[in-house]
Write a protein that binds this DNA or RNA. Sequence first.
DNA 1: ATATAATATTGTAACGAATACAATTGATAG
DNA 2: CTATCAATTGTATTCGTTACAATATTATAT
Lengths: 141, 141
Amino acid sequence: MNQKMSNIANELTKNNIKPSIHRMRILEYLMDKRDHPTVDEIYINLKKECPTLSKATVYNAVSLFVNVGLVKALTIEGTEVRYDYTKNNHGHFKGEQCGFICDFDININQMNFDGLDHCEILSKDVNFKGICSECLLNNKR
Amino acid sequence: MNQKMSNIANELTKNNIKPSIHRMRILEYLMDKRDHPTVDEIYINLKKECPTLSKATVYNAVSLFVNVGLVKALTIEGTEVRYDYTKNNHGHFKGEQCGFICDFDININQMNFDGLDHCEILSKDVNFKGICSECLLNNKR
DNA sequence: ATATAATATTGTAACGAATACAATTGATAG
DNA sequence: CTATCAATTGTATTCGTTACAATATTATAT
Ligand SMILES: [Mn+2]
Ligand SMILES: [Mn+2]
Ligand SMILES: [Zn+2]
Ligand SMILES: [Zn+2]
């Protein structure tokens, strides 16, 4: 097992998740491809290398990862759930024409708000929607 | 038709939606009950007064409302879509224990961010999650 | 007012993401 | 090797949503 994989194994063990082959592959995928994939996208792409992979295993794995806080489940629009391996807090922009989702920098904790006294806030999400630069160019032509 | 209902009819006509009885009732519901209901909640509650109402009509109506910008579709968590009749921009807090969703004041346009040059931003959503004050009290006991 | 056309509503079928679960496979320890 | 436990698989089921054809309602023309 190479260095990368043993790091991934460590990451899982630290969170009390046994590092099985499939779990490691799924976490590796999320670490490498930061394009906020759906379960289906993870499944289809990993299936090429692991033909025996089942979609249920992908659901199981990402649920485990979300529960321990290793990855975040994003619900930016509609009924589509996407997964994000990330340490630093950031905002998400979704281009509504092409569906592309990108990160952007925003200091979510600098924002001041009012009306949530006596609530315990555990997570803060900022989602923007609109038309991405690429689509804007295409639309002009 | 009373004053309230003719206002609702106006609101719809202004947006090129013909003010049918059901559409008016559904918009009225969203205006009165600002607790961000799901399609199912709208359907179940209105069904009491309009026994012939179909869930397809609720889906049709809220889709029309969302398309013209009369109401907003909220996707705060998971695959659950909720609807919000609102003019002023605000944030949403979801209590994860009880599922309760409330508004809070935040000046979304004051936030400064970076990395979305040349994108056209059409909407900005801020969603917080955590434990609501009521649940916090219950948990202590 | 009646016939005609257009639109809204309904009920149901189809779809797809997510979950549940029993059966199988794989790993671990004695 | 065998027994035990956990992970994975495949499938069935659930549930929210969409699609669509049939019906009811409303608007328009004669
Ligand atoms: Mn991200
Ligand atoms: Mn609201
Ligand atoms: Zn785009
Ligand atoms: Zn609560």
